[in-house]
Amino acid sequence: MSNSSFNSIIHAPNRLQICALLAPAEALEFIVIKNHLEVSDSVLSKHIKVLEDAGIVKVEKKIRNGRNHTWVSLSTEGKKAFEEHVNKLKEIVGLK
């Protein structure tokens, strides 16, 4: 059985980078992702909402020292979908 499938939600450049940043981590704060992508809060929120609605990422809001902290992590399904998407890209390139 092939473990590669193209995911059009993940493939958008910013969303692809979000998933790639999250893959090696347990979770990253919204601000960390924002600094890496160099996009505005609203643009990043929009992408994260799309990924969250698709069940690819989980969003957790926490309050620390009176400040809101938004943690983003890949869900189990998200990890699988991202891995399959990468495999598909490798297949297209001829690496698999």
């Binding site: 493939h11 450049p13 692809l16 980078q17 998933c19 790639a20 940043l21 999250l22 893959a23 090696p24 981590a25 990253l28 890496h36 990468v86 890209l89 490798k90 390139v93 690496l95």
Partner: peptide
């Protein structure tokens, strides 16, 4: 796309 993924993962790690 693969290059972008690789770079982002490298930065994250």
């Amino acid at each position: 796309a693969l290059k972008m993924i690789e770079n982002s993962q490298k930065d994250s790690i």
